[in-house]
Design a binder for these strands. Structure first.
Lengths: 136, 136
DNA sequence: GTGATTGCAAATCTTTTGCACTAAA
DNA sequence: TTTAGTGCAAAAGATTTGCAATCAC
């Protein structure tokens, strides 16, 4: 929880072109001070409150999108009624537990796609997402 | 537009265990009387109105989910703020045009996945979705 | 008739926005 | 200072729900 100094996060924000405000620093600490994770806005807002971080839900939404635009987070689409954000921005894929809504990373190397159609004329592939949906 | 008899759709609904009501028949005709397509609820509701089919938006939502549960449609998740339904329920994948929100089928045979991790203990893979996101 | 289905409007849920206030540089 | 960032409450979408009216069987 308190394993890394604030300076690290402040620097990371500056490096991404974001002003290190109290709220952003606190959220960055929650997000990046530990193993990779998947969060929703609601989810992170609650966690902030539990940790006595005063931040509004609107700011959590804004911050998640700013972090995503800055390349610190990746947005994952698996449920058409909720946005998930992943602190792992490397090339990788996901297991999606349909029953619980939980997400789990699959390292990029564990999926091999050997055939894929060419991008349509004039288009560029921005990403290939593989979602393995599992149930009990 | 009027190429197939109503009887065909009525039978299809019965076969899926759904009462062939006026609304369901009309929507089935819009959905299945032609090549495969991708629709949203809003989208299909507008089309119904244009074709003088009187049906409420709530019923369109309900019907799309009933059809999906019955295996007549498949839900595709590519945008966390809109539900897409696909009349193609065979094994296949998608191009997603990020700029326009348009979806395009990729036949199952055009994607080959040669490595994939095993499903987690006690879980079964219900589906593997591949979404190729493209931009201009 | 009887139970399933529908329509409508209201409710719900997630996400975004407008704007006055506060804080970082 | 000056400009970016924040909080709040209200707005905006998309989807669901409750319930009386209607329809299929």
């Amino acid at each position: 929880m308190d394993s890394r100094p604030y300076a690290l996060f402040i620097e990371r924000l500056r490096g991404a072109g974001l002003r290190p405000t109290r709220q952003r620093i606190a959220l960055a600490k929650l997000l990046f001070d530990g193993p990779d994770r998947h969060v929703t806005a609601e989810n992170l807002h609650m966690e902030a409150q539990e940790n006595a971080v005063r931040v509004s839900l609107a700011t959590v939404y804004n911050t998640l999108h700013q972090f995503t635009d800055a390349g610190l987070l990746r947005e994952i689409v698996v449920d058409s009624n909720r946005c998930y954000f992943d602190t792992n921005v490397d090339d990788h894929h996901h297991f999606f537990y349909e029953d619980s809504g939980r997400l789990e990373d699959i390292p990029g190397a564990e999926v091999e796609i050997t055939r894929l159609p060419a991008a349509p004329e004039g288009k560029t592939v921005s990403r290939v997402d593989v979602v393995v949906r599992v149930t009990s």
